[in-house]
């Protein structure tokens, strides 16, 4: 599952714009994720400038 850490997130939308399947939505200060659309490409995780996004399937 994708998770956004609110303590790090700057709600800039970098993750949203990088998502190739449009499964993320920046709802003012909260990033909402449609998990069933996610293809686990990891773009959002690497694109987040501050490393606020993580997932249990992600490994570096």
């Amino acid at each position: 599952m994708l998770q956004v850490k609110p303590s790090l997130c700057n709600y800039c939308g970098a993750c949203v714009g990088s998502c190739p399947v449009n499964c993320m939505f920046l709802d003012e200060t909260i990033v909402r994720i449609e998990e069933d659309k996610c293809i686990k490409c990891g773009f959002c995780i690497r694109c987040c400038p501050v490393g606020a996004i993580d997932a249990d399937w992600w490994s570096e």
């Binding site: 990088s18 995780i45 690497r46 694109c47 987040c48 400038p49 490393g51 606020a52 993580d54 992600w58």
Partner: peptide
């Protein structure tokens, strides 16, 4: 560029 980034929070 994103294709040059491998890990979390690397840009910072």
């Amino acid at each position: 560029a994103l294709n040059k980034l491998k890990s979390k929070g690397e840009v910072k």
